[in-house]
Amino acid sequence: MNAKKLINSKTAAFFSVIFSALLIGAGVFLLKDRRYMLISLGIVFLSFVPFAMIFEGRKPRAREITVTAVMIAIGVVGRAAFFMVPQFKPMTAVVIISGIALGRETGFAVGSMSAFVSNMLAGQGPWTPWQMFALGLIGFISGIIFTDRNFQSKKILVCIYGFFASFVVYGVILDTSSVMMTVYEMNFQTVLSVYLLGIPFNLIHGVSTFLFLMLIGNSMIRKLSRIKNKFGILLCN
């Protein structure tokens, strides 16, 4: 039991930071023009390792597995549900709700796997790891900040968080990644200009997350609590 407890999110985060630091060092000294790429990709992959270890290490029971799978599938289907508005993706909102209701680690799993599976259906690309990282991070953070008990009172905060998470966190991570792919040296100017180009898309994304959380966030949280009761376990950690 002790050994299992050791691999909690804090140790995971710690190791991520250590490895990332090593990688940054390696990148700076070894590669010249593609170093940002290597470093960032390395960080992204390394961040998956501890989470995957946590997920596997605690030997999730059938119930946790099914609920995780259901939330991922809902997020993926949501992308198709709003076909009439381009870029209107409720996936981020679903990830935030999962993070809040099921805990930060499940939030990370739901986020990263939603991105992975939706790309499995739509086609993987160089953007896959970054999307996985961005959504995973959003799910993880929402699990830290909010809990399902205080959702009701902090609803507007959650909505604003949702807006910023998709508009800023997701947007910046994805746009930065495309800059890294193409540009010799990263500077503020290039990132900013790419981000400005992407504003319309990110705005719709942010608004859709906001609307989704505002309008049915509450009922989604209640549905999940009901299932947690029905399963008779606290999925939260």
Partner: peptide
Amino acid sequence: SLASVSSTTTWALENAVFTA
């Protein structure tokens, strides 16, 4: 669409009990 996503979620989660 939002109402339908919500309804689908309920259905999905309730059925998940049996899948588990």
